[in-house]
């Protein structure tokens, strides 16, 4: 029996390309990885494309146009396993801030000729359109977690990605709590781990780029933010960034939005 290497495809929807770049940032692991997997479709790396089906598709970006809503169905149909990578693909990304506003007004602000632009009123996660086998969080995703997910796929096992909060990672690496020690507002208690608790280790509060952790105690966090002098408007802003449309974050920001 001859062994055929599994095929990998990387797809881009509305995004900044940063999560795809994380694939290229594997650097030392990149060429060995290319030895185990056939990179069949990855426009950031090669013009060569092999038509599907693909064994593994990594999908970056959110759905923001009618054309992309159609394209993701084709990608799903051509993929045995589909894994979404990054905040755009898993929650709609920063461009989901339009979901809280009027997209027509947004068009007027940015484009001189809004009629040339085709766009949807909302930016949505891939999983709202097609079934997804695994969602890898982060804005951007973490390199180590990406390796784990691809390795797990090759070994036919579930990826070992934990959904506890950033606080656990701070404890693990011995970082002193920035809120307790310095009174710095920090989204760590409600944000999923995965970055290695980067921000607190640089003396700043977590800003939630990995999206909500599994269990979010929002009343406790929001009352602590108020004690620290965070205004209601800034509280809303802090939950309306890269994972604004993730249900748990959306709930918090909507609960604190000033009523008009």
């Amino acid at each position: 029996m001859t062994s055929v290497k599994p095929t990998l495809a990387v797809w881009k929807f509305a995004s900044c390309d940063g999560c795809q770049l994380t694939v290229l940032n594997l650097e030392d692991d990149l060429l060995p990885l290319a030895g185990e997997i056939d990179i069949a479709h990855f426009l950031e790396a090669t013009r060569a494309t092999v038509s599907g089906p693909y064994d593994l598709s990594l999908v970056e970006g959110s759905i923001t146009t009618p054309h992309d809503a159609e394209r993701i169905r084709e990608v799903r149909a051509a993929s045995r396993t589909l894994i979404t990578i990054g905040a755009c693909a898993t929650s709609g990304g920063i461009q989901a801030l339009r979901n809280f506003a009027n997209v027509e007004e947004f068009l007027q602000i940015v484009y001189a000729r809004p009629e040339y632009i085709s766009t949807l009123a909302n930016s949505t996660a891939i999983a709202e359109h097609v079934p997804v086998d695994f969602e890898l969080r982060g804005c951007p995703i973490d390199k180590g977690q990406l390796v784990e997910v691809v390795t797990a796929f090759l070994a036919h096992r579930r990826p070992n990605i934990r959904n506890h909060s950033v606080c656990v990672e701070c404890k693990k690496r011995g970082t002193v709590c920035v809120t307790v020690a310095h009174g710095t507002p920090c989204l760590g208690p409600v944000t999923q781990a995965g970055c290695g608790a980067l921000c607190p280790s640089y003396a700043r509060g977590c800003y939630g780029c990995f999206g909500p952790a599994e269990t979010v105690n929002s009343p406790s966090l929001t009352s602590r933010f108020k004690e620290l002098g965070v205004s209601e408007a800034d509280l809303v802003r802090s939950f309306r960034t890269f994972n604004a449309n993730a249900p748990a974050f959306r709930e918090i920001s909507e609960a604190h939005e000033p009523r008009t």
Partner: peptide
């Protein structure tokens, strides 16, 4: 596809711009 950065930057705090605009290009 358009992402409307210049539109949703309105109403944001000036200190947020390094983190927000970074997301224009990875």
């Amino acid at each position: 596809p358009p992402r409307f950065f210049e539109a949703f930057l309105r109403g944001r705090r000036f200190t947020e711009t390094p983190d927000i605009t970074a997301r224009i290009c990875g």
